[in-house]
Design a protein around this nucleic acid. Structure first.
Lengths: 149, 149
DNA sequence: AGCATATGGATGCATCTGCATCAATATTGA
DNA sequence: TCAATATTGATGCAGATGCATCCATATGCT
């Protein structure tokens, strides 16, 4: 028995418009000479964490990255002078991430471009009510937090 | 003026559930010892093209890949003996792609696993009516076919 | 016809990702 | 207290991707 057509349609439109939207927004950043979206996401999570900084483990769960992905993303951010790895006082295996002044500056520089792209691609194309409906529908589809059977 | 909360929510839920779902389904294939989703998509497009085969250019527009991405994906598929590149009669620069018998077999082997994953992750979690609503909403968000401003 | 330009597709190089594993420190339990 | 195990984060290696460019053929223009 073949799969339902609406299931297939939901699958393909979800995956492709998700990817296309992501690419389109990413392209805006690149066109503005800015770093990629992951950088923004990481900077933002670290900045939101405030004074206490953020453990890489936390970043791993907030972003959609495997452990080694975080490790290397942080490498690049640190090499670019945007993030600082500090020793973690509670756990000598661990670290705590903090933004540098440049990191905060970069985050603030990226945001308006990012925001404009979201406005153009989402807010301008879909009324508020539909955005809410979409979010509710999507939430019922989200698989558990990590990889599952 | 800050961006609307629903716009942000739509953005993040769309991108993250899209990616999670894609990862979850991909993980099913891997768990079954099967090749990744792109392979399936390419095989399926080529198979659907039928007797006449498919030009790489067509594949490029149907899948969400840049030109060199198609070139290399086809490399791998050909190396695995699933796809054959034939000379294109009309245009000596071009090629026409065809599935080998093994390619058809592989496509057919992957499908039940893929289908089961879609059923579990989509059909089982969301009623038909909502799937339709979701598709309609997503369609209004799809950026133009390729990269745009 | 003959040259400029456009198109289909491949590829060298740098970067990024996935996988497996490692080293260092923490935690558990006898 | 000490060994077994778990956890944090890094890394060597192979494979994948992005970017720019290249080659070969097609098309357009004069």
């Amino acid at each position: 028995m073949a799969i339902d057509r609406t299931t297939e349609a939901a699958w393909t439109t979800l995956v492709t418009t998700g990817r296309r939207l992501h690419d389109a927004v990413g392209a805006r950043l690149k066109a503005a000479g800015l770093p990629p979206l992951d950088w923004y996401d990481a900077l933002w999570e670290i900045e939101k964490a405030g004074e206490g900084g953020l453990r890489p483990l936390e970043l791993e769960s907030r972003l959609l990255l495997p452990q080694y992905g975080v490790s290397r993303l942080v490498d690049r951010l640190a090499k670019a002078g945007l993030v600082e790895r500090r020793a973690c006082p509670d756990d000598r295996r661990g670290q705590v991430l903090h933004l540098t002044a440049e990191g905060r500056e970069m985050r603030a520089t990226i945001w308006p471009v990012y925001e404009a792209a979201l406005t153009d691609h989402i807010a301008a194309r879909m009324p508020r009510q539909d955005r809410l409906r979409l979010v509710r529908l999507l939430q019922t589809l989200d698989p558990g937090d990590l990889s599952q059977t």
